[in-house]
């Protein structure tokens, strides 16, 4: 039996109309913004399933833009998100797909930053404003955004996971949840998705990259 807080029942304070199609969409855009990192020049959102069917009526488009602009789900500016995107010089495009998706409320976010770097994020809104990022640049991941998260790309070899865990512990960062993925044994592009209690700082990233040579990329979300 879940241990509810009174504020799970009364709340959240949110911009309507739908916790899954609006509030969840804001969060998907917001987490994508953290993953992309740099200033965004253009972004294309491809909507699938119920997002594609009813998203326009739920303001899912505005919610996604608002999130990628860094707004929170109760921001009153969500309604005017298109205008704020124009003011920031960010071009936005929407594709409403008829293709089937694994989950009814799925979006693919393809962004190009001002340096021409491309990032592709796939996520879903799983209900009650909660989300799950399922893919980053083609890599299958599981990011909920409920905790500070780091994603590490590394060479698949014995000892990498314990190295990373050891360095994190020395930096005083406690691992809350961790998942590892690889396509095959010895994969040069294996990766781990680590949710932590403390936030990993850019300085910590530098230390971890130096002390774990098998790690070739670390993304802080």
């Amino acid at each position: 039996m879940e241990n509810y807080s009174v504020f799970d029942i009364i709340g959240p304070r949110m911009t309507g109309p739908s916790s899954s199609h609006t509030a969840g969409a804001v969060r998907l855009g917001y987490i994508a913004r953290l993953i992309i990192g740099g200033k965004i020049e253009s972004v294309t959102f491809t909507l699938y399933g119920s997002f594609a069917e009813t998203g326009r009526g739920h303001g899912t488009d505005k919610a996604l833009i608002a999130g990628i602009l860094g707004f929170s789900p109760d921001d009153q500016r969500i309604r005017s998100a298109y205008k704020f995107a124009r003011d920031e010089g960010m071009s936005v495009d929407f594709v409403y797909s008829d293709e089937p998706a694994d989950h009814p409320n799925t979006v693919r976010i393809e962004a190009v930053d001002v340096n021409g770097r491309r990032t592709e994020v796939v996520g879903r809104s799983v209900g009650g404003g909660n989300i799950l990022i399922t893919e980053i640049n083609g890599l299958p991941v599981e990011v909920t955004g409920d905790y500070p998260t780091i994603i590490i790309q590394h060479h698949d070899e014995p000892g990498v996971i314990s190295d990373v865990a050891r360095v994190l512990s020395q930096l005083g960062v406690n691992i809350a949840n961790m998942k590892v993925f690889r396509r095959s044994r010895g994969d040069s592009n294996a990766f781990m998705c680590i949710e932590t209690d403390e936030r990993v700082t850019p300085e910590m990233k530098g230390i971890l990259m130096r002390l774990c040579p098998a790690v070739h990329e670390l993304m802080i979300i």
């Binding site: 949110m14 911009t15 309507g16 916790s19 309604r79």
Partner: peptide, 21 residues
């Protein structure tokens, strides 16, 4: 109506039933 117009509400317990309480 405010919820449907993308205004700010408090879910109670959900957005669709946020008017009653």
């Amino acid at each position: 109506e405010v919820n449907a117009a993308m205004g700010r509400i408090v879910a109670a317990p959900t957005a669709g039933a946020s008017g009653i309480l």
